[in-house]
Nucleic acid binder design. Structure first.
Lengths: 226, 226
DNA sequence: CCCTGGCGTTAAGAATGTGTGAAGAACGAG
DNA sequence: CTCGTTCTTCACACATTCTTAACGCCAGGG
């Protein structure tokens, strides 16, 4: 079915949700706090997130906002609050649905499927640009049919560049995508990885171009016409 | 904003929905019955559909199913019924959301935007003036379809000019926009950037005009009669 | 007429951003 | 523990962009 991430501080609510989700075939991971939720999301790359609004520490809305900085995973917000202003705020911050507790398990599962069904073109497990092919699930990259040996960081950078192939991607976007949480001076190290990436890409139809002061762009050279 | 199609048999509910939608800038069309709703959808190609489940004749669920045979348009289902089985059925048939009457207008509008933002190519904030197109997120500028190579400062200046295209922008406004913090004699350097900008823009439909003693104005020439 | 203030252009140094190599730290596997 | 891989940090060369300054142009007023 896919991976689901539960972010909720109440243990019994997590247990209930886990039961419902696993009965439907989901693989489930949990977090009891916002920041940990972000880390789990970055590490496990879930297919869908269930987020409780009443979180201690970093609140649910802020967690959602920080998640949305680098991820567009479908998020279903759970809450005991039925106030319209809260709902609107959550939906505008990037939530895909808002369900009020208590809820029916069948409706919850149905809504989970809806928000996954509507995912953008990015849900494709692989993306292509010119002679470059990336398998996002397996973390494998092919150029001209030959496999590329990339480190996880390099793959992450190349994936966001490829997703927006031909267009500029801001340094900020790249950094947020690769290092979702914390960082001292990330652009510093980014240059090194870009350098390594260029060496591995060589000169075979695609190359990483710098747009000074802004970011990078993956340029694809058409080798021939079909 | 976009076109919305209302399919509901109660005239006063249609009137209420129309008011809410038009206040948000939607263009609205209506149908009082399922089959007519399908015809309207085929003809007007709405960006979003509001479907009442309690329809006479062909029911709401059946209307939804027939619509889904050929259309992918986002559908928000409205209903007085709060039964879980009905909700699940609607969602599994292809609805993107299910709202129970009575509903809050702000929540309805928020949910409408959610089910629309998940489609199609990523929407990035961009502004346009004549043949000029600026992508504010990526810092990309297109003129006549050809990309412009602008430095960050040039892009910043051009963006505030384009935002107020055709109207005068004070030197002060430009300076505050480009250099948000202090400056000795900013207008001094501004002239240099304006000069560079003009050279890059060339003579292709837009140009930067000086209003002596006041500021600058982006003039767009309609490429009508060559 | 000449002077003055605002503007446009060009050129050069200063400031900032970027590419690359290498060394050490962190991490996981055996 | 040791090894190999990957990540981070640093140093320095190089590139781009920004700022400053100088000079010519034009219009309006004395």
């Amino acid at each position: 079915m896919g991976k689901a991430l539960i972010i909720d501080d109440e243990p019994q609510m997590r247990r209930l949700l886990r039961m419902v989700l696993e009965s439907r075939g989901y693989e489930v991971c949990e977090a009891d706090e916002g920041l940990r939720g972000l880390q789990e999301a970055a590490f496990h790359r879930p297919d869908v997130v269930l987020l409780d609004l009443g979180l201690p520490g970093m609140g649910g809305i802020e967690t959602l906002a920080r998640l949305r900085e680098w991820s567009d995973v479908p998020v279903l917000v759970l809450s005991v609050r039925d106030q319209e202003t809260v709902k609107v705020q959550a939906l505008e911050t990037g939530a895909d649905d808002y369900v009020t507790k208590p809820f029916g398990s069948a409706e919850l599962l149905a809504r989970l499927e809806v928000i996954q069904r509507r995912r953008g073109p990015r849900h494709t497990p692989e993306i292509t640009a010119g002679a470059l092919k990336l398998d996002l699930l397996r973390h494998e990259a092919d150029l001209d049919g030959e496999p590329l040996r990339l480190t996880p960081t390099e793959f992450s950078i190349l994936s966001i560049l490829t997703e927006h192939a031909g267009r500029i991607v801001t340094q900020n976007q790249i950094v947020k995508h690769v290092w979702p949480v914390q960082q001292s001076d990330p652009a510093e190290g980014l240059r090194v990885h870009i350098s390594h990436l260029r060496r591995k890409l060589g000169d075979r139809g695609v190359r990483v171009v710098n747009e000074p002061g802004i970011g990078y762009r993956l340029e694809i050279r058409q080798a021939s016409a079909p």
